[in-house]
Design a protein around this nucleic acid. Structure first.
Lengths: 231, 231
DNA sequence: AGATTTAATATGTATGTACATAATAATCGA
DNA sequence: TCGATTATTATGTACATACATATTAAATCT
């Protein structure tokens, strides 16, 4: 006799969804019925189905029951590694070069990303290059809010990247990402050692501590870079 | 007196992580201790911390306990909507145009994506344009494995997009995504009504039913498109 | 001392029970 | 018949308990 775990219940539910034994749009049996049929407790079924619902493969509503959605919104889990780990995970050696730091008033588009009405105080602007096997890999263009992390002004960013420093030293509460593409401007092309106008994959990230914006960064990856995710 | 829920326990744990009350690299109290301190059962603490661990904000190991990782791998949940929903979610009207369908032998790079040694059978090749407010939005270049979904050959893809048909009619078991950027080739530029060489955000997706590859698709979005995710 | 076995321990999970919550269905009154 | 109220019901969650599992630390043996 095999033991029933919530994983095995989940696997069986997945099988029924994929085999269309539970067709799209259709209602599936109640937790209690499934528990009896599969020979386990309702808690176990609940755990299994709850996870599937979180993944978007089922829709659950109190009293209404559980159904297979007609148009599932697939949720992919994307692991956003620190660039060092991304590079080292590819079996390449990681290196980092600080290109410039300065204190300046952020331009309007950065203010907008940080939800600041107007630039009331200078921020730290960091330009840095991440290298894989000593070849350019990713150009980082970052603005850091001095009002939230004033210590950054005294930090030697030649030793540790702003990315890593912030991850290890700034309490954050929320963040948003946006992926896109852009044509390499002249300065970017120079640093990434690619033709001007080359299509670059970009990752914009803004990070918050409660209601205070900490940092906004744009990462420009070398031509050909791909970011992968599993479903 | 406020009631303790697993959400409130999770919020308190998050607060301690972010406030560095539980510093990076440090061990946090045992479930049993936390349960006593917060006035709830261990099950409730377990549920709260388990979810945080799944999100990458804690590391848990049996006997070793729970610690705050030094270099958290942030996991962003990306919702991959059907393009129709993406467009309609932006408040625009969705439209779809089938540009061409044909049966052909897939080129080597498609075979590779589908993990096929060599093309042993013809597949369906579909080219389609997704429109937002009747303007080009996204060009779809798809190959579909006839051996897995032969019904696609009899389907009228002018009415329903291959994307939607497959979501609703093909049982799938796994998939992988890759995001990137490319320069618009001449044909693509023509359909998307953008300059040749314009930087395009691309999404490659391959879908499987057990060990059988169902489809491989490349979506090319218009210049300026961004895909968003929250953390 | 070094290797192997054994004990201790923190998390992982299953169960039964009880009640909460949300949404639907049924009922009743005007 | 319509609208408001009241039951009903499926999922959501909390708890206590028990045991499983993985891992570490201690103990034991050679």
């Amino acid at each position: 006799m095999t033991i029933i775990t919530w994983q095995s219940v989940q696997a069986e539910a997945l099988r029924r969804i994929r085999s269309r034994e539970w067709p799209p749009g259709g209602q599936i049996p109640h937790e209690a019925d499934l528990a009896e049929e599969l020979g386990c407790s309702r808690g176990t079924v609940n755990r299994a189905l709850r996870d599937l619902a979180e993944a978007g493969l089922l829709e659950r509503r109190r009293k209404a029951g559980t159904r297979v959605p007609l148009n599932p919104v697939r949720k992919a889990t994307l692991e956003i590694p620190i660039i060092r780990q991304d590079v080292e995970g590819r079996g390449q050696s990681y290196n980092y070069r600080l290109l410039s730091t300065r204190e300046a008033t952020p331009p309007p588009e950065i203010c907008e990303k940080l939800s600041l009405k107007k630039p009331d105080a200078p921020m730290v602007h960091v330009l840095a290059l991440h290298l894989a096997d000593d070849a350019p890999f990713c150009l980082e263009d970052r603005w850091i809010n001095l009002q939230v992390v004033p210590e950054i002004a005294q930090t030697d960013l030649t030793e540790i990247s702003a990315n890593e420093w912030l991850v290890q030293n700034a309490a954050f509460s929320a963040g948003s990402f946006a992926f896109g593409a852009m044509a390499a401007p002249e300065a970017t092309a120079k640093w990434l050692d690619c033709p001007i106008g080359a299509p670059l994959f970009t990752l914009d990230r803004t990070t918050w501590a409660a209601a205070l914006p900490i940092t906004s960064v744009r990462l420009c990856y070398i031509p050909g870079y791909q970011m992968r995710a599993e479903i």
